[in-house]
Design a binder for these strands. Structure first.
Length: 494
RNA sequence: CGGGGCGUAGCACAGCCUGGUAGUGCGCACGGUUUGGGACCGUGAGGCCGCAAGUUCGAAUCUUGCCGCCCCGACCA
């Protein structure tokens, strides 16, 4: 195995694949299109889950679990929804195998299911089928439920984390008595996603509305957060849908309102997936490997002893005991790597590859001088810091502040990158030229699906969203020259 | 589903054209010298050469079929 990663600037997609594998996040499995998430990668996902789950709970949601299998008849009920997902469904047709007589197994033709089961690509239908039994009165509302699970979408072409046939996610499904409340829920959860992306992943996002062509199948309105990757492409990082009464109608979920009239319930759904792992890699990492925001790093501080003899190691291990204790007391995830099968230089490179935000190097010289070498992953700089090995509180406080600083620094770096690569574009020639260079293009659009499709056909750029926050004035469509109320965000996307 | 590439040790690959003892590097095990940015020396273990059929005295190598994976496109989060 070669030591150096492919260069980000030379082959971005190979660079991405190599980081995912070499940083031990995930690998391709024997099953086509499905990945194995390795312990280190899963530890990051668990941190994401924890952060999001806490935010869901804080906004009044509860977790539940619904079946993996969706009867075909359920999926059929909402027409647009059915049409949207039909092309990518895995279908269970039998419930038994039998011996084929030569040591193998074959599907038992006598065990055909009366009704095929779809492996869920999303759970609106099963959940709304269940909600029918939960909702009678306005007093039963709202229902604010989330589930953490896997889903299957049979993709033609897959990439680790970014697009896999099976992936992990959370899907929130809420039911409300009024349209206003459901709309407000949709916005609230979009806000939660944006906050998660920015505060935890240090990844700035644009919040916006999807155009009808990019809308979730069955939704009235789809909201999204879009992030810019380091190659200038956009990545949809989370979606929140206002479903109107579409699913309530399809599954006949009516309730009695305060005026004693029957009314269909209002719905939302929102999801965020392991795709975020891919976003995390592509937002911050460099040619030395992964760069993790401290808040999501499974190991926030790694301590590497530098020694010659076992006696030196024993001395160092004893001396740094209080530092490790104080780091843990401050809630910092610390790893002391005293393994003797690799040398310190190897460990430096390895923890850099894995994106550990802060590395402490301690050798005999440090013990004499009362110092520790502090290296930060985001800037690849290092400095010698004074420490009282007996009373390390002050030193550890400094490390804690450093972690905060790194969290903020990589956010600012990503934000600056996005700003430097976001362009106001007013002519079609400019558009065509700039899209080749990458980045976000803010341009006027006449609001028609025809223009949107033409632009996609000619440039592969899609409207990522109509940004919610915008002080743009009206103008003329960059393609058709017709009137446009405001600029929309164009980009090539993952 | 089209176009390209690849299946040989845990990993990365050579060998195949021109059939004849299965190799190299990394990793692994043991021993020694080392240790402030991916150490070195020695010894050793590890292979149904993707699967199947065929040609041949003999197949990793030639022929046919199958399977799988990766990359690039169309579809999608």
């Amino acid at each position: 195995m070669s030591k150096a990663l492919p260069k980000r600037s030379e082959n971005y997609s190979e660079w991405y694949n190599e980081i995912v594998k070499r940083a031990d996040l995930a690998e391709n499995s024997a099953v086509r299109g499905c990945m194995v998430i390795k312990p280190y990668g899963f530890a990051i996902w668990e941190k994401m889950q924890r952060a999001l789950d806490d935010m869901f709970k804080a906004t009044g949601h509860q977790n539940a679990y619904f079946p993996l299998f969706v009867p075909k008849s359920f999926l059929e009920k909402e027409e647009e929804h059915a049409e949207g997902f039909a092309k990518e469904c895995a279908v269970v047709t039998h419930y038994r195998l039998k011996s084929d007589g030569s040591g193998g197994l074959e599907v038992d033709p006598n065990a055909k299911l009366e009704e095929e089961l779809i492996v869920r690509p999303t759970s609106e239908t099963v959940i709304w089928n269940a909600y029918k039994g939960w909702i009678q009165s306005w007093r039963d509302l709202p229902i604010l439920v989330n589930q953490w699970c896997n889903v299957v979408r049979w993709e033609m072409r897959t990439r680790l984390f970014l697009r896999t046939a099976e992936f992990l996610w959370q899907e929130g499904h809420t039911a409300h008595a009024t349209e206003e409340e459901a709309v407000s829920e949709t916005h609230q959860m979009l806000g939660v996603y944006a906050e998660f992306a920015e505060d935890w992943m240090s990844m700035p996002v644009v919040q916006g509305i999807k155009t009808p062509s990019e809308r979730f199948a069955g939704a009235v309105e789809t909201f999204c957060i879009e992030a810019m990757m380091q190659d200038g492409k956009a990545l949809q990082a989370g979606t929140s849908h206002f479903l109107g009464q579409n699913f309530a109608r399809s599954f006949d979920v009516q309730f009695v309102n305060k005026e004693n009239q029957l009314e269909y319930a209002w719905a939302t759904s929102w999801g965020l997936s392991t795709r975020m792992m891919g976003a995390l890699v592509m937002a911050h990492s460099d040619d030395n490997g992964l760069v993790l925001p401290p808040k999501l790093a499974p190991i926030q501080v790694v301590i590497i002893p530098i020694y010659r003899s076992p006696e030196d190691l024993a001395t160092i291990s004893e001396k740094i005991g209080p530092i490790i204790g104080e780091l843990k007391a401050q809630g910092i995830a610390v790893k002391y790597d005293d393994s003797d099968n690799q040398r310190s230089g190897w460990k430096f490179a390895e923890y850099e590859l894995r994106g550990v935000p802060v590395r402490l190097g301690i050798g005999m010289r440090d013990l004499e001088n009362g110092t520790v070498e502090v290296a930060r992953r985001d800037t690849l700089t290092k400095e010698s810091r004074a420490v009282d090995f007996e009373k390390p509180e002050e030193f550890v406080l400094g490390i804690k502040l450093l972690l905060d600083e790194i969290q903020e620094n990589i956010y600012n770096k990503a934000l600056r990158f996005r700003e430097d690569n976001t362009f106001l574009v007013d002519t079609w020639d400019e558009f065509k030229e700039q899209i080749e260079k990458g980045g976000f293009l803010m341009a006027h659009w006449d609001g028609t699906a025809e223009t949107e499709a033409k632009i996609k056909e000619e440039t592969k750029a899609t409207i990522r969203c109509i940004p919610l926050i915008s002080d743009e004035m009206a103008g003329k469509c960059v393609y058709s020259g017709k009137d446009s109320p405001k600029r929309v965000l164009f980009a090539r996307a993952y």
